[in-house]
């Protein structure tokens, strides 16, 4: 997530292999720097690489009849995903993610953009104000929405109070509630992504465009929007990916009415106990994620996601 972090490049892998360096490598094994990186090597190999590799392996294994996994190769888990019922889940997931991303962009882009135009003092204040809800546990924030959405909750009271509605709306456990919850959870990512892009924008370029005859809107489209596009795209990636996996939002606000890939994985894992299938679902989700990031890089020409540290 850090812009500093280099993506694993093969070049790095090869540098150690020159013959002349080999001789010294025995001593180098015991120098301070090498010893200090041993823990992260061990931890990463054991608890990041190991699990991920196992996930891929597992996705090709057969499920045992009663409990556990058989060591037999099969494509079944992947072909299983193609069943209409699961395909529909993917479709629903993608649809919800697209909806969410669209709304998040509509709400978050102007926010990040306006924020970047504030004075330095206000920018800092605004950052702090954003930080508080952003760091608040998502459970607490979700709970707040339950209070608002539930029958005779805050929203009902307000609406009935001003006479817009007569009876409590059944808002909780609906699709809209899930969408609102998702937007709420993800909009800060969009804001930060757009903000970091818009912050770098040279406002003199906008003035130059106006000076050359552009209306405010033309200047925005041809200059500001075009130059903050990487931020917007980064925000899209940052909201789209998690919104396919945020099963607990769908769980709590949707009350089992909205099933996402995330819910499916959780269900297969915890209830159906079909681990190979859950692994296959995860692999597909990972691939979708990687494709999105790759697409983003290709379109924006930026190596790292904007707005991530």
């Amino acid at each position: 997530m850090n812009t500093e972090i280099r993506r694993g490049s093969p070049a790095v892998l090869m540098t150690g292999g020159e013959p002349r360096k080999r001789k010294a490598s025995f001593r180098r094994l015991f120098d301070a720097a090498t010893i200090s990186v041993v823990p992260i090597y061990v931890f990463t190999l054991l608890f990041v690489v190991g699990p991920l590799v196992y996930m891929v392996v597992l996705s090709f294994l057969k499920r045992a009849e009663t409990w556990g996994v058989l060591r037999e190769f099969t494509w079944a888990n992947y072909s299983n995903i193609l069943k209409p019922v699961y395909l529909k889940t993917f479709y629903e997931s993608l649809k919800l993610a697209s909806f969410t991303t669209l709304f998040v962009a509509l709400v978050g882009y102007p926010f990040g953009y306006f924020m970047a135009r504030l004075t330095a003092v206000w920018k800092r204040r605004m950052m702090l104000l954003l930080m508080i809800p952003f760091w608040t546990s998502s459970l607490i924030r979700l709970y707040g929405w339950i209070i608002i959405f539930r029958a005779n909750g805050t929203l009902d009271n307000i609406l009935m109070g001003i006479g817009l509605t007569k009876a409590p709306l059944k808002l909780l456990y609906t699709y809209s509630a899930v969408v609102v919850g998702m937007i709420y959870a993800l909009v800060p990512f969009m804001i930060f992504a757009v903000y970091s892009s818009a912050e770098k924008l040279d406002w003199q370029l906008v003035e130059a465009a106006r000076d050359l005859g552009a209306t405010p809107w033309q200047a925005f489209i041809t200059v500001s929007f075009r130059l903050t596009l990487p931020g917007l795209l980064s925000g899209v990636v940052l909201t789209f990916i998690p919104s396919m996996g945020l099963f607990f939002i769908a769980d709590i606000l949707g009350g089992n009415k909205v099933i996402l890939v995330g819910n499916l994985i959780q269900e297969q894992l915890m209830k159906a106990r079909n681990w190979p299938f859950a692994a296959a679902l995860s692999v597909v989700l990972m691939i979708l994620t990687s494709i999105m990031i790759a697409l983003y890089r290709k379109v924006s020409g930026v190596k790292d996601l904007e707005g991530l540290v």
Partner: peptide, 9 residues
Amino acid sequence: TNLRGKGII
């Protein structure tokens, strides 16, 4: 460090 694979790790 000159340990191999540090970029990947």
